[in-house]
Protein backbone atom coordinates (compact mmCIF):
# COMPACT_ATOMS: atom_id res chain seq x y z
CA UNK A 1 0.00 0.00 0.00
CA UNK A 2 1.30 3.43 -0.87
CA UNK A 3 0.26 6.71 0.72
CA UNK A 4 -3.00 7.67 2.37
CA UNK A 5 -5.39 9.00 -0.30
CA UNK A 6 -6.71 11.94 1.72
CA UNK A 7 -3.16 13.13 2.46
CA UNK A 8 -2.63 13.60 -1.28
CA UNK A 9 -5.15 16.43 -1.40
CA UNK A 10 -4.01 20.04 -1.08
CA UNK A 11 -2.92 20.96 2.50
CA UNK A 12 -5.68 23.58 2.65
CA UNK A 13 -8.26 20.82 2.13
CA UNK A 14 -6.61 18.71 4.83
CA UNK A 15 -6.56 21.49 7.40
CA UNK A 16 -10.13 22.51 6.57
CA UNK A 17 -11.31 18.98 7.26
CA UNK A 18 -9.57 18.79 10.63
CA UNK A 19 -10.71 22.23 11.75
CA UNK A 20 -14.27 21.24 10.87
CA UNK A 21 -14.07 17.81 12.48
CA UNK A 22 -12.43 18.96 15.73
CA UNK A 23 -14.49 22.15 15.97
CA UNK A 24 -17.80 20.33 15.54
CA UNK A 25 -16.89 17.60 18.02
CA UNK A 26 -16.16 20.20 20.70
CA UNK A 27 -19.35 22.16 20.00
CA UNK A 28 -21.89 19.34 19.60
CA UNK A 29 -22.52 17.17 22.64
CA UNK A 30 -25.41 15.18 21.25
CA UNK A 31 -24.72 11.49 22.03
CA UNK A 32 -25.47 10.21 18.52
CA UNK A 33 -23.08 12.75 17.00
CA UNK A 34 -20.42 11.94 19.57
CA UNK A 35 -20.74 8.24 18.83
CA UNK A 36 -20.38 9.00 15.11
CA UNK A 37 -17.27 11.05 15.95
CA UNK A 38 -15.71 8.30 18.06
CA UNK A 39 -16.30 5.62 15.41
CA UNK A 40 -15.15 7.64 12.40
CA UNK A 41 -12.08 9.13 14.08
CA UNK A 42 -11.13 5.72 15.50
CA UNK A 43 -11.50 4.14 12.06
CA UNK A 44 -9.37 6.74 10.30
CA UNK A 45 -6.79 6.59 13.10
CA UNK A 46 -6.46 2.82 12.69
CA UNK A 47 -6.33 3.08 8.89
CA UNK A 48 -3.48 5.60 9.16
CA UNK A 49 -1.47 3.96 11.93
CA UNK A 50 -2.12 0.29 11.20
CA UNK A 51 -1.53 -2.18 13.96
CA UNK A 52 0.38 0.27 16.18
CA UNK A 53 -2.79 2.39 16.33
CA UNK A 54 -4.33 -0.07 18.79
CA UNK A 55 -1.79 1.03 21.41
CA UNK A 56 -3.27 4.53 21.46
CA UNK A 57 -6.83 3.17 21.51
CA UNK A 58 -5.87 0.90 24.41
CA UNK A 59 -4.49 3.88 26.31
CA UNK A 60 -7.58 5.99 25.63
CA UNK A 61 -10.10 3.45 26.98
CA UNK A 62 -9.07 3.66 30.67
CA UNK A 63 -8.76 7.45 30.38
CA UNK A 64 -12.27 7.57 28.93
CA UNK A 65 -13.69 5.44 31.77
CA UNK A 66 -11.87 7.49 34.40
CA UNK A 67 -13.04 10.85 33.02
CA UNK A 68 -16.61 9.60 32.68
CA UNK A 69 -16.80 8.08 36.16
CA UNK A 70 -15.20 10.98 37.99
CA UNK A 71 -17.67 13.68 36.93
CA UNK A 72 -20.58 12.63 39.25
CA UNK A 73 -18.21 12.94 42.21
CA UNK A 74 -17.89 16.66 41.51
CA UNK A 75 -21.32 17.32 40.08
CA UNK A 76 -24.20 15.99 42.15
CA UNK A 77 -27.07 17.52 40.19
CA UNK A 78 -29.49 15.22 38.40
CA UNK A 79 -32.77 13.39 38.93
CA UNK A 80 -31.90 9.70 38.98
CA UNK A 81 -29.71 8.79 41.92
CA UNK A 82 -27.79 5.60 41.23
CA UNK A 83 -26.16 5.26 44.66
CA UNK A 84 -24.70 7.35 47.46
CA UNK A 85 -20.99 7.78 47.88
CA UNK A 86 -19.38 9.64 50.83
CA UNK A 87 -22.77 11.09 51.65
CA UNK A 88 -23.22 12.58 48.18
CA UNK A 89 -25.56 11.35 45.46
CA UNK A 90 -24.05 9.74 42.34
CA UNK A 91 -26.53 10.57 39.59
CA UNK A 92 -27.16 9.01 36.20
CA UNK A 93 -27.41 12.43 34.55
CA UNK A 94 -24.01 13.50 35.81
CA UNK A 95 -22.55 10.16 34.68
CA UNK A 96 -23.99 10.65 31.19
CA UNK A 97 -22.56 14.15 31.11
CA UNK A 98 -19.20 12.71 32.13
CA UNK A 99 -19.45 10.20 29.28
CA UNK A 100 -20.12 12.99 26.79
CA UNK A 101 -17.18 15.07 28.02
CA UNK A 102 -14.90 12.03 27.94
CA UNK A 103 -16.04 11.22 24.38
CA UNK A 104 -15.22 14.76 23.25
CA UNK A 105 -11.76 14.31 24.70
CA UNK A 106 -11.24 10.92 23.04
CA UNK A 107 -12.49 12.14 19.64
CA UNK A 108 -10.20 15.15 19.86
CA UNK A 109 -7.16 13.01 20.70
CA UNK A 110 -7.92 10.67 17.81
CA UNK A 111 -8.44 13.46 15.25
CA UNK A 112 -5.24 15.15 16.44
CA UNK A 113 -3.44 11.83 16.04
CA UNK A 114 -4.66 11.70 12.43
CA UNK A 115 -3.76 15.37 11.92
CA UNK A 116 -0.16 14.67 12.96
CA UNK A 117 0.09 11.96 10.34
CA UNK A 118 -1.60 13.92 7.53
CA UNK A 119 -0.39 17.50 8.04
CA UNK A 120 3.37 17.14 8.05
CA UNK A 121 5.75 20.04 8.65
CA UNK A 122 6.24 20.81 4.96
CA UNK A 123 2.48 21.13 4.44
CA UNK A 124 2.23 23.48 7.42
CA UNK A 125 4.96 25.77 6.11
CA UNK A 126 3.41 25.61 2.63
CA UNK A 127 0.10 26.83 4.08
CA UNK A 128 1.56 29.63 6.17
CA UNK A 129 4.66 30.48 4.11
CA UNK A 130 3.10 33.57 2.55
CA UNK A 131 1.16 34.65 5.60
CA UNK A 132 3.99 34.55 8.14
CA UNK A 133 7.21 34.30 6.09
CA UNK A 134 9.77 34.82 8.86
CA UNK A 135 8.10 32.39 11.26
CA UNK A 136 7.78 29.72 8.56
CA UNK A 137 11.43 30.14 7.64
CA UNK A 138 12.28 29.76 11.33
CA UNK A 139 10.27 26.54 11.50
CA UNK A 140 11.93 25.11 8.40
CA UNK A 141 15.35 25.91 9.84
CA UNK A 142 14.45 24.23 13.14
CA UNK A 143 13.22 21.13 11.30
CA UNK A 144 16.54 20.91 9.53
CA UNK A 145 18.64 21.73 12.59
CA UNK A 146 17.15 19.14 14.94
CA UNK A 147 18.41 16.01 13.15
CA UNK A 148 21.66 17.85 12.42
CA UNK A 149 22.19 18.70 16.10
CA UNK A 150 21.26 15.19 17.21
CA UNK A 151 24.03 13.91 14.94
CA UNK A 152 26.45 16.46 16.37
CA UNK A 153 25.46 15.51 19.93
CA UNK A 154 26.30 11.87 19.19
CA UNK A 155 29.64 12.94 17.71
CA UNK A 156 30.52 15.02 20.76
CA UNK A 157 29.58 12.36 23.28
CA UNK A 158 31.36 9.72 21.17
CA UNK A 159 34.53 11.80 21.15
CA UNK A 160 34.31 12.38 24.91
CA UNK A 161 33.78 8.69 25.50
CA UNK A 162 36.86 7.90 23.44
CA UNK A 163 39.04 10.01 25.75
CA UNK A 164 37.49 8.37 28.80
CA UNK A 165 35.28 11.27 29.83
CA UNK A 166 31.92 9.90 28.79
CA UNK A 167 29.22 8.75 31.17
CA UNK A 168 28.13 5.20 30.36
CA UNK A 169 24.80 3.67 31.23
CA UNK A 170 26.14 2.63 34.63
CA UNK A 171 27.26 6.11 35.66
CA UNK A 172 25.75 7.86 38.65
CA UNK A 173 23.08 10.51 38.20
CA UNK A 174 25.52 13.28 39.08
CA UNK A 175 28.08 12.10 36.51
CA UNK A 176 25.42 11.72 33.84
CA UNK A 177 24.18 15.22 34.57
CA UNK A 178 27.57 16.93 34.43
CA UNK A 179 28.53 14.96 31.32
CA UNK A 180 25.24 15.93 29.67
CA UNK A 181 25.75 19.59 30.56
CA UNK A 182 29.25 19.59 29.08
CA UNK A 183 27.96 18.05 25.86
CA UNK A 184 25.20 20.64 25.73
CA UNK A 185 27.71 23.45 26.25
CA UNK A 186 29.97 22.21 23.46
CA UNK A 187 26.96 21.74 21.22
CA UNK A 188 25.76 25.28 21.92
CA UNK A 189 29.00 27.00 21.01
CA UNK A 190 29.47 24.78 17.96
CA UNK A 191 25.93 25.41 16.70
CA UNK A 192 26.02 29.14 17.41
CA UNK A 193 29.32 29.64 15.58
CA UNK A 194 27.70 27.83 12.68
CA UNK A 195 24.60 29.99 12.93
CA UNK A 196 26.60 33.19 12.51
CA UNK A 197 28.26 31.80 9.40
CA UNK A 198 24.89 30.70 8.01
CA UNK A 199 23.39 34.10 8.77
CA UNK A 200 26.20 36.00 7.06
CA UNK A 201 26.04 33.67 4.10
CA UNK A 202 22.30 34.26 3.79
CA UNK A 203 22.90 37.99 3.89
CA UNK A 204 25.63 37.75 1.27
CA UNK A 205 23.17 36.00 -1.01
CA UNK A 206 20.66 38.79 -0.67
CA UNK A 207 18.35 37.69 2.13
CA UNK A 208 15.96 40.50 3.00
CA UNK A 209 16.61 42.56 -0.12
CA UNK A 210 13.44 41.53 -1.89
CA UNK A 211 10.23 39.60 -1.35
CA UNK A 212 11.06 35.98 -0.79
CA UNK A 213 9.20 33.59 -3.06
CA UNK A 214 8.41 30.15 -1.73
CA UNK A 215 8.41 26.85 -3.50
CA UNK A 216 5.64 24.35 -2.94
CA UNK A 217 4.83 21.10 -4.65
CA UNK A 218 1.14 21.47 -3.86
CA UNK A 219 -1.28 22.90 -6.42
CA UNK A 220 -5.05 23.15 -6.23
CA UNK A 221 -6.24 20.70 -8.90
CA UNK A 222 -9.77 20.03 -10.13
CA UNK A 223 -10.07 17.19 -7.63
CA UNK A 224 -9.11 19.58 -4.82
CA UNK A 225 -11.74 22.13 -5.83
CA UNK A 226 -14.34 19.34 -6.03
CA UNK A 227 -13.39 18.09 -2.58
CA UNK A 228 -13.51 21.65 -1.23
CA UNK A 229 -17.09 22.00 -2.52
CA UNK A 230 -18.16 18.68 -0.97
CA UNK A 231 -16.59 19.58 2.39
CA UNK A 232 -18.15 23.05 2.44
CA UNK A 233 -21.62 21.78 1.48
CA UNK A 234 -21.58 19.08 4.17
CA UNK A 235 -20.16 21.41 6.79
CA UNK A 236 -22.71 24.09 5.87
CA UNK A 237 -25.54 21.58 6.27
CA UNK A 238 -24.24 20.52 9.68
CA UNK A 239 -23.88 24.13 10.85
CA UNK A 240 -27.35 24.95 9.52
CA UNK A 241 -28.94 22.10 11.46
CA UNK A 242 -26.87 22.94 14.54
CA UNK A 243 -28.20 26.52 14.52
CA UNK A 244 -31.68 25.09 13.96
CA UNK A 245 -31.31 23.29 17.28
CA UNK A 246 -31.45 19.68 16.10
CA UNK A 247 -28.19 18.79 17.85
CA UNK A 248 -28.75 20.22 21.30
CA UNK A 249 -28.43 17.97 24.27
CA UNK A 250 -28.21 18.79 27.95
CA UNK A 251 -27.71 16.26 30.70
CA UNK A 252 -27.77 18.04 34.04
CA UNK A 253 -29.95 18.71 35.93
CA UNK A 254 -32.44 17.11 33.52
CA UNK A 255 -31.86 14.96 30.46
CA UNK A 256 -33.07 16.63 27.29
CA UNK A 257 -31.74 15.30 24.02
CA UNK A 258 -33.05 16.37 20.62
CA UNK A 259 -34.47 13.31 18.83
CA UNK A 260 -32.87 12.08 15.61
CA UNK A 261 -35.57 11.53 13.04
CA UNK A 262 -37.45 13.22 10.24
CA UNK A 263 -35.53 16.12 8.74
CA UNK A 264 -32.98 16.01 11.55
CA UNK A 265 -31.76 12.78 10.00
CA UNK A 266 -30.41 14.83 7.09
CA UNK A 267 -28.15 16.81 9.42
CA UNK A 268 -26.90 13.62 11.03
CA UNK A 269 -26.26 12.03 7.62
CA UNK A 270 -24.31 15.12 6.52
CA UNK A 271 -22.21 14.93 9.70
CA UNK A 272 -21.43 11.23 9.23
CA UNK A 273 -20.69 11.78 5.55
CA UNK A 274 -18.28 14.59 6.38
CA UNK A 275 -16.37 12.55 8.97
CA UNK A 276 -16.26 9.45 6.77
CA UNK A 277 -14.60 11.19 3.79
CA UNK A 278 -10.93 10.45 4.65
CA UNK A 279 -11.60 6.84 5.66
CA UNK A 280 -13.71 6.25 2.55
CA UNK A 281 -10.98 7.66 0.30
CA UNK A 282 -8.38 5.53 2.06
CA UNK A 283 -10.44 2.34 1.67
CA UNK A 284 -11.29 3.11 -1.97
CA UNK A 285 -7.58 3.57 -2.69
CA UNK A 286 -6.66 0.31 -0.93
CA UNK A 287 -9.25 -1.64 -2.91
CA UNK A 288 -8.07 -0.12 -6.18
CA UNK A 289 -4.47 -0.87 -5.31
CA UNK A 290 -5.26 -4.48 -4.54
CA UNK A 291 -7.27 -4.88 -7.73
CA UNK A 292 -4.40 -3.50 -9.81
CA UNK A 293 -1.97 -5.77 -8.00
CA UNK A 294 -4.21 -8.76 -8.62
CA UNK A 295 -4.34 -8.00 -12.33
CA UNK A 296 -0.57 -8.12 -12.79
Amino acid sequence: MTQDAFSKYHPAINILFFVGAIGSCVMIQHPAYLLAGVLTSGMYYLLLHGRSGWKMIGALVPLFLFLAAINPLFNTRGETVLFWILGRPYTLEALLYGVSVASVFVVMMLWLGCYNKVLTGDKFTCLFGNLIPSLSLLLVMVFRLVPNLIRKTRQISGARKAIGKGAGSGASLKNKLTAGMTVLGVLTSWALEGSVVTGDSMRARGYGTARRSSFTIYRMTAADWGMLCILLILLGTVIGFAIGGSMTATFVPKRSIAPIGGTNLLGFAAYCGYLLIPSALHIKETIRWNISKYRI
Binding site: L137, L138, A191, G194, S195, V196, G199, D200, M202, R203
Partner: peptide, 11 residues
Protein backbone atom coordinates in the same frame (compact mmCIF):
# COMPACT_ATOMS: atom_id res chain seq x y z
CA UNK B 1 14.39 40.26 11.23
CA UNK B 2 17.95 40.05 9.98
CA UNK B 3 19.36 36.75 8.75
CA UNK B 4 21.71 36.42 11.75
CA UNK B 5 18.89 36.92 14.22
CA UNK B 6 16.69 34.35 12.49
CA UNK B 7 19.37 31.69 12.43
CA UNK B 8 20.28 32.42 16.03
CA UNK B 9 16.69 31.93 17.20
CA UNK B 10 16.40 28.74 15.13
CA UNK B 11 19.58 27.35 16.68
Amino acid sequence: PQARELVLIAV
